[in-house]
Design a protein around this nucleic acid. Sequence first.
DNA 1: TAGACAGAAT
Length: 550
Amino acid sequence: MRPQPCVFEFNKLLTSIVKMKKLQLAVIRRGFAANKRDDAVFLFRQMLRMRPQPSVVQFTKLLNVVVKMKQYRVALDVFDEMRQSGAPVDEYTLNIVVNCHCLLNRVDFGFAILGSFFKCGYKPNVTTFTTLIKGLLLGDKVGEAEKLFKKLLRLKLCEPDEVTILTVINGLCKAGHTLTAYDLLRLFEKTSFKPNVKTYSTVIDSLCKDRMVDDALQLLAKMIDKGISPDIVTYNSILQGLCNFGRWKEAKDLITKMVDYKISLNVITFSILVDAFCKEGLVKEAEDVVEIMMQRNISPDVVTYTTLVDGYSLVGQIDKARKLLDSMLGRGLKPSIMSYNSLINGYCKKGKLEEAWRLFLEVPHKGLDYDVIIYTTMLRGLFRAGRCAHGLKLFKDMQAQQLIPNLVTYSTLLNGLCMNKQIGEAFSLLQIMEEKGVNPDITTYGILIHGLCKDGKLEIARNLFNGLPSKGLQPSVQIYTTIIGSLCQEGLTEEAKCLFKEMEKSGCAPDSVTYCVIIRGLLNRNDLSEAKTFLDEMCRRGLSSITLKP
DNA sequence: TAGACAGAAT
């Protein structure tokens, strides 16, 4: 097996900054990656003992390695020990610390470090303030970020640079304020803070992700007008936007254009295409894309293969999914937690629960940490197989592991309970989730309504349904369809027809399933003419009619 | 201190 990233990083650090043979041996003999915090602290203490003492640059490098491994908490622990032991600290070290606090969503602690700057005789610089702005936006504190930015200009605390501008725009986008970011970008165009290609690409990407692909295309035209050439990142964002909304012809044309403009397609470009084909269930085409990229000497990465594993799982080709995942190690790639999730999901869908469970238990032995999603996948699998007690135990286990169940986890669990006719338990759980501050959404209510209807508790389902508007929720097509179907089953076709009309009036367009459900209900009551009216209406609307059993 | 690719709920 190849070295894991953390061991690799530490070894790089050792060879680059710690030249003492004895220390290297000690560290290697001890074995890395047993505990990231301990390893970092151990290395740091060894450095403290070295004579001559390593410089501040070397201590800072150690911190940087820990940060690159995304172990922000560990980096802060090491920093605390550094200070207590009187290790040298400079403005670079302090900026790293500010960044860690921000990435841990504690921008307040980040601001507190400003005091340390002054105490140590340093001045916070443009990096410090840019990092703090990033931290504020990470916590969706848009107003405070704006205030800080203006303060920098007013008090001339530092000169914002290209990174500052990008950080502000990117922070707004990632906090879900794409249109604010867009307006600000247009505003910056008119000032001396000219946005660069990265800044334009960020907004283009965010517009695409927010379903505003046409606006993204317009912004692309505008940046070209201003003489800023889009690069591979810009095009990849647009490509993904087009693929996500089924605009295949434009996606194909974009690729042609990229080739014409001599933009070299990279592993991400191809991964986007693999993903697009897989989501459509076209795994053969996805395989072809992988083949083409290899012919071009572009190696598929963990994401490319994981996407394909997910594609195979989606279409039920579980053996191919397994083989591909197993082949990753041989190719020098370490499957991620997402790779395992996709495969576990595939096994669960195939009903191969034992295999899924075996794989789930293997996760820690692969050097990976469990996350909320993989637990949710496994929970779904267990409940689907009717193993409720096991599922509930796993739900407890995940919380014992400090993993906080989210809306999807609770909804999955509610569905599992409902499908196993444990309606009472489902409602108790609903109360628990609300107490924990997880607010049910329309999907959650859909699950409960569906469960109640399936269990013949139409009255309770209707009450829940009627209460949706007061919760600020608009019933979905599926929910209307569920209730209409249930009414039909009870022979209440008149009521079903009323609800159908009500649904249309509320602006919720019935789909082919809704039509089929009501047509079947009418046929069962031998109301042939009424059924024909609905059938004609359905065809008139261009909805494909799925087979209707007479 | 800088932008683009993958996983869970009816």
